[in-house]
Amino acid sequence: MTTRDLVLAALFTAIIIVLGLIPPVTLGFIPVPVTAQSMGVMLAGCIIGARRGAMAYALLVVLVAISLPVLSGGRGGLGVLMGPTAGYIAGWVIGAFVTGLVAERLVREGQSGLVQMGGFFLASILGGIVVVYAFGMPVVSLVTGTPFAKVALGSLAFLPGDLLKAAIATLAARAVMVGYPLLPQRA
């Protein structure tokens, strides 16, 4: 790992923390408040790639564990890591990695904007939604005893907001791709 990789991951962790400090916005048509922070998984993977994106999130988990209130709403400490939503936090690390892996394969410089955005959107959905929920929901069900089917059903309420986040992350990732491309290329 080069020093640049380490710095990029750390800077991205800092960006994710700052996104958590922005007050959440409630969109008119979705009852669930949208925190900018939960977009971070998609942004990290699409912008700095699989390995560095996962590193940024692993670092975030370290900061939570050593009792810094870095999650949105000032959450932090071991209580969060051992609570019912712990699976989602593990899912973030893997999710950022998967988002990056997909984005690295689908998106490269020189493609048309639409193709790039399609790639980023697909990567965001796979890594930032599918993977995160695949880790989060079973843990919630296991820890709280709520049947899995009910947890999955309840999670559907978050889906419109998550798709919207994937769209915003796509726009941001494309903007960075144009202005300052960092995504490693893979054949």
Binding site: R4, L8, A14, A172, A175, G179, Y180
Partner: peptide
């Protein structure tokens, strides 16, 4: 937010080098 993210991320990551 979608207008801020791009400039915020680019200006931050440009310092990495």
């Amino acid at each position: 937010l979608h207008r801020l993210l791009g400039p915020l991320i680019i200006s931050t990551l440009k310092d990495a080098d």
